[in-house]
Nucleic acid binder design. Structure first.
Length: 199
DNA sequence: TGCACGATGAAC
DNA sequence: TTCATCGTGCAC
């Protein structure tokens, strides 16, 4: 049995962290959403590596979930949600912000996890509490819609040192129109994080 | 071709 | 509670 020689690492050396695979996203959406908490979102643009620790997410469960965009059916905007897992679904909201999602489950399920807040780790400027501000701070816009999250410039990884997470479950924000679906506890955040958008 | 409406954030 | 601001989806 040989022993692989690893060069010394320091916390925060993202190149040695484990990038999440397609298989990670190809699972139950609630499970993926909860497991995304504490993971590092990485976006490399203009030779700058931006990293944020995911502290708040929301699960959108497919066409039967009346709060999900996919409930409107397959359209030009939502086709990414209907595609395979592990791709980014980025859309503009209220004419001025972008929201960043990761597509989950197998092709056709049209489910996704909305990234709502991150804790700044590296090269993050400005506030990051809320999906619009998160996307702005991470320089995520329409150009990253349908981008492969197993790519080299936009992905999510497991940090080297993982701390235990105290999970909080709450109703999703801004979906009061969705009837009984508005009440379901599909918003998850790290209790102790000061970077959560709302409590 | 027109128009109502957001998975928001900030100001009042 | 109001408003800025515009792409999307659907009505006409």
């Amino acid at each position: 049995m040989s022993v692989r020689i690893m060069k010394p690492v320091s916390v925060g050396d993202v190149n040695l962290m484990q990038k999440l695979s397609r298989d990670f996203y190809n699972r139950d959406t609630v499970t993926v959403a909860q497991e995304l908490l504490g993971k590092y979102l990485v976006h490399i643009a203009n030779r700058t590596e931006m990293i944020g620790r995911i502290v708040e997410v929301e699960a959108y469960l497919g066409p039967h979930d009346l709060a999900a965009h996919s409930a409107k059916g397959l359209t030009e905007r939502t086709k990414v949600m209907f595609g395979p897992p592990g791709y980014a679904y980025v859309y503009m909201i209220y004419g001025m912000y972008y929201c960043t999602n990761v597509v989950t489950e197998s092709e056709g399920h049209a489910s996704a996890v909305l990234l709502r807040a991150i804790e700044p780790i590296k090269n993050i400027h400005g506030r990051t509490q809320g999906p619009g501000l998160l996307s702005k701070a991470m320089q995520i816009d329409k150009q990253l819609n349908a981008h492969d999250l197993t790519s080299d410039n936009f992905y999510i990884t497991t940090p080297l040192s993982v701390t235990p997470i105290h999970l909080v479950k709450k109703p999703r924000i801004g979906v009061d129109y969705a009837g009984v679906w508005a009440k379901k506890l599909l918003r998850f955040y790290i209790k102790d994080s000061r970077f959560v958008s709302r409590r």
